[in-house]
Nucleic acid binder design. Structure first.
Lengths: 261, 261
DNA sequence: AACCGATGGTTTGATATTTGAACCAGTTCG
DNA sequence: CGAACTGGTTCAAATATCAAACCATCGGTT
């Protein structure tokens, strides 16, 4: 792992529930040497990617990130473009919908919305990277994303998130093949207990998925009726998101989706 | 310059007018070796801070930045908090107002708003880092920010942005002293030709400026009347922004502002 | 087709930086 | 006091960097 990757990985330890992290905590989370972590934190701070709370000495995400995010959204306003589509689908289904983009061998949440019409709801952390083998989104990405994604992933050990996570290489291959045939992925409690989700791929201008759109609901609410409704609407939403992002759905997948409808 | 700084500095070459940058262009902009730049770009891409356009091979800002920005805004919604104050002041004055936060030895734009009531207007690039010695915001930061900021800056060569930029150490020291007495900074065409601006510091919980609020207008519109109006309103706005961000204005500066009013 | 001048990307081996175990210093708590 | 935490710093050994040369590919020109 290169220096830059080590440093940037430190930033991934922030989450909705952990906004400020100290040196020792970073060392524990990253497993790196303390001196190294410290130099990395200093350098990230000097560049505005972190800022240090003068009182607690803890580190927080810094202003540089906001500045760069503003630039990206201005040039390629993906968040703004997909937001209405996500909200519309979430409203129709009454469940949590999220769009994520591939970030290396994970998926990075871009936008999510929950209609909040039910008492129980699925918790979704925008800061958390989604693993490819444990989530419906991940399976959709493995099936329709870059072809070297699955082989690379199979070289690593598949870490279970729950007792239901697929950790067997052969089973993962078969499941991905099935997703490729169906044009939609379904996972029950693979990432979080008691949560089921569906996902379909979203494309850029190449016939290679750049992200996914997914619906997640508590498993108890995932009835045959809701499943049918999701299967009927999700491919359409994926097509709309793809078009909003200036991409095209590959013809063979378009055919699969049409036949399913 | 450390590896991480070199890599992160690459990201600063993006701007509103330059959304996609190729390897050779990065090499020219950064002055670094091509092989090094390429390795850095690859590593940034692998971590989602950049993404590569498969067609042109150029690099763009990646999804990781959005993800982290969402986390930061959720934990410390500075942008959302200051936006209404910036817009209110911009409306009252009819000119461009911006709030920036310190990012190492520069200022990083956090939010800006232009009432757009005049035909000519000041161009403001959210992606661009503001130098401390050339802008009103910078002088306010030098006067009220960390005490080691000015000495450190004086050790480097002061690069002129226009013919009016202060590049003399002695003059800069005097000017900063004056800003410290006035509680407000004024610069005429120090950063952009034909643009004048005022700035006051904004504080966190320590008696040390963390950022600034500034008004910029075409020099021809900067009449005595407008100047008086800005001097009367900017300190109040700076106080409001400080309070929104959960900080306090140091008592001695509060006295200066009160006496001026 | 052959050529040119760009581009992105890779390799090599001497050189410089990063690394990590141990070390230092300040707090907090019994 | 001393133990157990913090955050932060030092100096041989591992790793990254640099410069220059190289390869492949693209789009236009002769």
């Amino acid at each position: 792992m290169g220096t830059i990757t080590k440093a940037l990985s430190l930033l991934n330890h922030f989450s909705a529930s952990r906004s400020e992290i100290g040196l020792t905590e970073f060392r524990n989370l990253s497993g790196q040497d303390k001196a190294t972590v410290h130099r990395h934190l200093s350098e990230l701070t000097a560049n505005g990617f972190l800022e240090q709370n003068p009182g607690t000495k803890g580190y927080r995400l810094g202003p540089a990130i906001l500045r760069l995010a503003a630039v990206r959204e201005r040039l390629f306003p993906a968040r703004r473009l997909v937001a209405p589509l996500v909200e519309k689908l979430a409203g129709e289904l009454g469940e949590l919908v999220h769009v994520s983009l591939r970030e290396g061998d994970h998926l990075s949440p871009l936008y999510h919305f929950d209609a909040l019409i039910h008492g129980t709801r699925v918790y979704f952390d925008e800061a958390e990277l989604l693993p490819l083998h444990a989530t419906a989104s991940g399976l959709a990405m493995l099936a329709f994303g870059p072809t070297d994604l699955l082989p690379k992933l199979l070289k690593t050990k598949l870490k279970p998130s729950t007792g239901h996570t697929i950790t067997d290489s052969e089973l993962l291959k078969q499941t991905v093949d099935q997703v490729r045939n169906d044009g939609i992925a379904f996972v029950d409690q693979g990432f979080e207990e008691h949560v089921s989700s569906f996902a379909s791929p979203v494309f850029g201008d190449l016939p290679e998925a750049i992200g996914t759109i997914a619906v997640a609901a508590p498993s108890v609410r995932m009835t045959d009726e809701l499943k049918a409704k999701i299967r009927a609407t999700l491919p359409l939403a994926a097509t709309e998101v793809t078009e909003k992002l200036g991409g095209v759905v590959p013809v063979d997948l378009r055919r699969i989706w049409r036949n399913a409808a």
